[in-house]
C-alpha cells in the first residue's frame, strides 16, 4: 500500500517536472543569454506539434524522426526570425515582448486559416508500467528522461565546450566579451535557434498526449512563464532545475487532490510569493549568495 502511494507521488512529480522543464527550457536559455522573452514560445511549441503531426500522418515517418523534423523545422524558423526581427529589439527588451506577441498572433491565426481548427492526431504510444496496483505511462516517464537529458546536454554544452564558455562570458558581460573577440551576434543567433528547437521538440513530444489545435500553445506558456519567473535568468540551468523541482512539489499534490486548474492557480500564487521575496528568482538568489560569500571572505 505504501509503495503504491509513493510510486504515485513520484510518478506525478516526474510527470509535472518533465512538463515544466520541457515547456520552459527553450525560453529559459534565450532569457539567460539574450535577456529577451519570446512571447511566441507557445506558438513555436504548437508548430513543433503540427510538424510532427504532418510528418507522421502524411510523411509516414516514425515518431523519433518526426521529433527531429520538428526540432530542425522550428529551429530554422527561429533562426530566420532572429535575423529578421528579434535582433532589432536587443536594446529594447520589452519591445521584443510586444513584437513577439504580434508574431504569436500571426502564427496561431495563420495556422488556423491554413489548416483549420484541428489537425489529425498522433497516436499515444501505450507503454504501460505496472507497480503494485497502479499502472503508469511509460511514455510520460520517458519524457522525464528526455527532459533531464536535455538539461544535461545543455550543461555539457555550457561548461565543456568552447562555445559554452563564450556564451557564459556573453551572459556575464556582453560588451566585455565582444571586446575579447567573441562574436556575440552569432551566439545570440545560435541561442535563439536552440531555444526554438527545444520548443519544437516539446511540441513533438507532447503531440501524442493532446489534441493538436492552433491555440494549444496557451496550455504550455502559462506554466512555462511561471517556471521562468521563479527560476530567474541569472543561470538557466540552476534556474530551470530548481524552479521546476520546487513547482512540481507544490503542484503535484494540489493537482491530484483538486484538479489541474487548482494546481495551476497554486503555481501562480507560488510564483507571486517567490518574486516578492526573491525578485531575481532562484538563480538570482543563488548568485547573490555566492557574491555575498565572496564579500565575507574578503574581510581584511
Amino acid at each position: 500500500m505504501g509503495l503504491d502511494v509513493l510510486a504515485n507521488l513520484l510518478y506525478q512529480f516526474a510527470d509535472n517536472m518533465a512538463f515544466l522543464l520541457l515547456a520552459a527550457l527553450g525560453l529559459m536559455i534565450i532569457l539567460g543569454v539574450i535577456d529577451v522573452i519570446n512571447l511566441a514560445h507557445g506558438e513555436f511549441i504548437m508548430l513543433g506539434a503540427y510538424l510532427t503531426a504532418l510528418s507522421y500522418n502524411w510523411g509516414h515517418l516514425p515518431l523519433p524522426a518526426c521529433a527531429v523534423v520538428s526540432m530542425v523545422g522550428v529551429g530554422l524558423f527561429g533562426l530566420v526570425l532572429e535575423r529578421t526581427l528579434i535582433r532589432r529589439f536587443y536594446q529594447d527588451k520589452l519591445g521584443a515582448l510586444v513584437a513577439t506577441w504580434g508574431v504569436s498572433l500571426i502564427l496561431s491565426q495563420g495556422i488556423l486559416i491554413v489548416f483549420g481548427p484541428s489537425m489529425a492526431a498522433v497516436p499515444f504510444p501505450q507503454w504501460t508500467l505496472t507497480v503494485g496496483a497502479s499502472s503508469f505511462d511509460g511514455y510520460r516517464l520517458m519524457l522525464f528522461g528526455v527532459a533531464v537529458g536535455a538539461v544535461a546536454v545543455l550543461w555539457w554544452l555550457l561548461y565543456h565546450t568552447r562555445i559554452g564558455v563564450q556564451t557564459r562570458a556573453a551572459m556575464q558581460n556582453a560588451e566585455m566579451a565582444a571586446c575579447l573577440g567573441i562574436r556575440i551576434r552569432r551566439i545570440y543567433l545560435l541561442t535563439f535557434a536552440a531555444g526554438s528547437a527545444l520548443a519544437g521538440l516539446t511540441g513533438a513530444l507532447y503531440a501524442p498526449t493532446t489534441t493538436i489545435v492552433p491555440l494549444m500553445g496557451t496550455g504550455f506558456v502559462d506554466v512555462a512563464f511561471i517556471t521562468v519567473v521563479v527560476g530567474g535568468g541569472a543561470n538557466p540551468i540552476v534556474g530551470a532545475l530548481t524552479s521546476a523541482a520546487v513547482l512540481s512539489v507544490i503542484s503535484a499534490p494540489l493537482a491530484s487532490i483538486s484538479g489541474t486548474f487548482i494546481g495551476r492557480i497554486g503555481l501562480l500564487v507560488a510564483a507571486l510569493v517567490v518574486i516578492r521575496f526573491l525578485p531575481q528568482g532562484f538563480s538570482g538568489y543563488v548568485r547573490d549568495l555566492q557574491r555575498r560569500r565572496m564579500g565575507a571572505a574578503a574581510a581584511p
Binding site: L31, V228, F261, R264, I265, L268, I275, R276
Partner: peptide, 27 residues
C-alpha cells in the same frame, strides 16, 4: 502588491499578468 513591492525586473510584470488572465480563462 506582490509585483511591485518586490521591485522585480521589467519583463516579469507583463508575463505574470498574462498568466493570470490565461489561468482565469481556463478556470
Amino acid at each position: 502588491y506582490f509585483l511591485f513591492y518586490g521591485q522585480v525586473s521589467g519583463w516579469i510584470i507583463p508575463l505574470l499578468c498574462l498568466v493570470l488572465t490565461l489561468i482565469l480563462a481556463t478556470f
